[in-house]
Design a protein around this nucleic acid. Sequence first.
DNA 1: AAATCGGGGCC
DNA 2: GGCCCAGATTT
Length: 356
Amino acid sequence: MISESLLPWYDKHARDLPWRLSPRQRCANPERQFTDPYHVWLSEIMLQQTTVVTVKSYYLKFLDLWPTVHELAAEELDKVLSAWAGLGYYARARNLHRCAKMISEDFGGVFPNNEEDLLVLPGVGPYTAAAISAIAFDEPSTVVDGNVERVIARFYALKDPLPGVKGQMKACAAKQTPAQRSGDYAQAMMDLGATICTPRSPACVICPIQENCKGRKGGIAADLPKKAPKKIKPTRRTYAYVFKDNKGRVLLRRRPDKGLLGGMTEVPTSGWLEGQDPLLDPTLEVLAEWDSFQGIVKHTFTHFHFEIVVRSAEFSQDVSRLAKELGASWHSEDDFGALALPTVMKKILRHAKLST
DNA sequence: AAATCGGGGCC
DNA sequence: GGCCCAGATTT
């Protein structure tokens, strides 16, 4: 069993993370052995496809702004999106807010304590449901994230590629899940994957489960797990129009609730075309004397590269009518911090000599 | 099953 | 430049 050697290692080497009770805290408070479900849920949503280092400051900021799920539920969505800006995968923030309302208004502020009921919550999938039930309630759920997949693939020397081998990995992981200290075990597996059983050059010589690891015995640990080849990313191009008024304000608008950067704040742009030069937006072009070529902002999303030609112009009249026509509103630089500006939009504004 | 959905740090 | 990250949701 992995847990026999892994848990003693975890007791010594567990990482100190904001959403994790330290051994001292657990010793001082025998009543509270597990992290508050609200804290576990919040951290797990943030940690989806996102590194621990990146999440830490956001997690602490959110708890500071909204100490309980009720306060988060009562907040405006745009305020939550603003606080989430920069973390990426903004559907997570929208689902987080929906879920908070559900917990606060329908569940009396009490999180479900088992995998099946947690799975119903928006933004909570198989991994997160298992993680919350294990970490917050010590349920013997099988928690499988990217770390665990790597550890299991190596421990059992599973050579078939992801994602096809996911089912087999889950079955292997389930066999190892202990009935006791399930939450600690889940976190120990993830710590192991993050610090020792790393993607490149794993530190097998100091690994607590090296004894029974088939990947290490076969000398193939570093080559696992195998993954299916990835598709190449196309490039999309657009013009971004930075409208400035004579007070140094800029026209910004809210993106549609669904899809890419849903609900976030944006600079008006022309169509996002693939594989060709961007097209000027005729309705925006005639509204001002635009600066000549100002250079290109480059940004890469999950599934495409993005190249933005930035244009800017200053307005002296009809600014309110213009805002109405574009469905946009004027914002001064001082307010940028309170807006839900995704990173690509901050790049564009900075390129136009505005400080975000 | 495949596509969509961010951003940063590392090599 | 590609890879990885405490994945979920939609098509």
